[in-house]
């Protein structure tokens, strides 16, 4: 019986592969866009402008403090009511990038704050502009400090992407739902789905742990 079911699940490999592709596409896009958002938010959060820093803090806390599923629903079901109509894929990428940006922003801000004040002083004393101080002196040091945490965050991002199956995107999780309707063995089907996530995430977990043990990221 088990072997028969396994055989049938494996027969659905094109669906699984498609789901896996969607999960990877969502994650990679959200990772890229979320990193851009995250660095921008982090720089503002750690910046000298108090008002801006607090505003960013509030924004970030809002998205860190509400369920991601709710955010997906807001983007997909509520934005159209104010005239912003997004496809399920775009909505998924938007929601996922935004929440990733919020988490990455907090990590980046912490990294920037960990760079000693003397570094900024030395850079200022050399005549660098604020932007140059950030780009040439502060960020490279901050990135090294936070790389292990960032990689860890990427793992969470990949797993969070499963939530967007709720708005009908055929990602890895939803492909599991589809298959389980034909092969009534949830443990088996979702075991295989879980394995799919694990295969993507484990190398990142391993990398993050290795970098943490070394105390810093490799020189890129």
């Amino acid at each position: 019986m088990f072997w028969l079911q396994l055989n049938r699940v494996v027969g659905y490999w094109p669906v699984l592969l498609k789901g896996l592709g969607m999960t990877v596409a969502l994650s990679v896009l959200a990772l890229l866009i979320g990193s851009v958002i995250g660095f921008a938010l982090g720089i503002l959060r750690a910046g000298p402008n108090r008002t801006l820093s607090r505003a960013v803090g509030l924004y970030v806390d809002f998205f860190r403090g509400t369920p991601f599923l709710l955010q997906v629903f807001i983007v997909f079901f509520i934005l159209p009511q104010v005239g912003i109509e997004l496809s399920a894929f775009t909505a998924g990428v938007v929601a996922l990038s935004n929440v990733a940006g919020c988490f990455i922003g907090e990590i980046v801000a912490a990294g920037i704050q960990s760079v000693p004040a003397g570094q900024k002083e030395a850079a200022a004393a050399s005549g660098f502009t604020r932007a140059q101080q950030m780009r040439l002196i502060v960020l490279p040091q901050a990135v090294r400090v936070v790389t292990p945490s960032l990689v860890g965050q990427f793992v969470l991002l990949i797993k969070d992407s499963s939530v967007v199956s709720a708005i009908g995107l055929l990602d890895l999780t939803r492909s599991g739902w589809m298959i389980v309707q034909n092969v009534p063995n949830g443990l088996l089907v979702f075991g295989i789905v879980g394995l799919g996530y694990f295969v993507i995430c484990y190398p990142l977990i391993w990398l993050s742990r290795r970098m943490e043990r070394r105390g810093q990221a490799p020189v890129l």
Binding site: A123, A125, G127
Partner: peptide, 17 residues
């Protein structure tokens, strides 16, 4: 910035990058 280009500053704690 223009002033600082003309004034070198050496710190107690070096502050090398």
């Amino acid at each position: 910035r223009e002033l600082r280009m003309e004034v070198g500053f050496v710190f107690q704690s070096f502050n090398l990058y």
